[in-house]
Every structure is written in C-alpha cells, then in structure tokens.
C-alpha cells in the first residue's frame, strides 16, 4: 500500500534534491568529505524514499530492477576499467595516470591550504563516479529485492 498523499508529495519534492545532493557528494569526493560510496548511498537512499512512499506495484513500474543491475555492472566495469587503463598505458594496475598530467582532471594542486578545484585528482573522480553508480544500483536493488519478499496482504 502507498502512504498518504502528503508523504508522496514530499517524496516527489525531495527526490530530485536527494539525487542532486548525492551527485554533488560523488563529484566532490576529492575536495570535501564524501566520495563515491557515500554519494551512492545517499542516492540509493533517495530511491528508498520513493520506494517507501509508493506502493510496491507503482515502484516496480517506476524503477526497473534490470536498470539497477545494469547500473551496478556498468559502475564496476568503469571502475575496473579505470584501473586497466593504467595497464594499457604501461603502468601497473590502479596507477593514477591522469593525476598532474594536464588532461581531464589533470590539474595540479597548490600545496597547503586551499579550497580545491574540481578539475584535479586524475582518475579519482572517475573512480568516484564509477563507485557511485555501482553503489546506487546495488543498494537500491537490495531494498527492492527485500521488499519483493514481503508476503501478500492477509497471509
């Protein structure tokens, strides 16, 4: 069963907020506290918010399990791909080849206290995004699976 209209409207309003906040946490993982896992968990909790506000039937039509599974695998592949890219470039696995290289996310950081810049840290933001996507899919699908196990009404 779904919750009352007030809760549903609240969830509708909060969902984009939680989403963008989670993405903010993911993206700023190398500057502020947070990172892929934390942001992914925030986003997944947003999904859990939608799940709790609506009934299970509505949720299954809104959020597809396959999409979440795909998200999980894509995130992991991206993550491991960021490591393998280093192998392809001739460095050992998981080398941070992009850091301080001047390419994407390759700016150098001045030493000492500074507020930081988004365009730094090499492969770390990519890994953050990858882990974020993976955790988003993974935790959301755990909640979905658990919810699907609840017996029908009256049993």
């Amino acid at each position: 069963m779904r919750m009352s209209k007030i809760v549903r409207t609240g969830a509708n309003l909060l969902y984009p907020f939680v989403l963008i906040f989670g993405l903010y946490v993911i993206m700023h993982g190398h500057l502020t506290p947070g990172g892929g896992f934390q942001g992914g968990a925030v986003v997944a909790t947003g999904v859990a918010l939608v799940i709790v506000a609506y009934s299970f039937e509505e949720v299954t039509s809104m959020i597809k399990k396959v999409g979440m599974k795909a998200r999980e695998s894509i995130g992991l592949l991206l993550f491991i791909g960021a490591g393998v890219a280093a192998l392809a470039a001739g460095a050992p696995f998981f080398s941070n080849i992009l850091a301080n290289s001047g390419l994407l996310f390759g700016q150098t950081v001045p030493a000492g206290p500074n507020p930081g810049d988004l365009n730094t840290a090499g492969v770390i933001p990519i890994m953050n995004v990858a882990v974020g996507i993976e955790v988003w899919g993974g935790l959301a699908i755990i909640v979905l699976y658990m919810l699907s196990s609840i017996p029908e009404e009256g049993s």
Binding site: A11, N12, L13, Y15, P16, L19, I20, L23, Y24, M27, V50, M62, L118
Partner: peptide, 17 residues
Amino acid sequence: AGIVLSLLAAAVAKNLL
C-alpha cells in the same frame, strides 16, 4: 559539472517531480 549532473538527475527524476 553542474549542468551535466543536473541533466542526469533530471533524466532520472523527471517523472516524479
């Protein structure tokens, strides 16, 4: 980054808001 992420969030959450 804000525009990209907002596009992503919009694509995901447009049906709800």
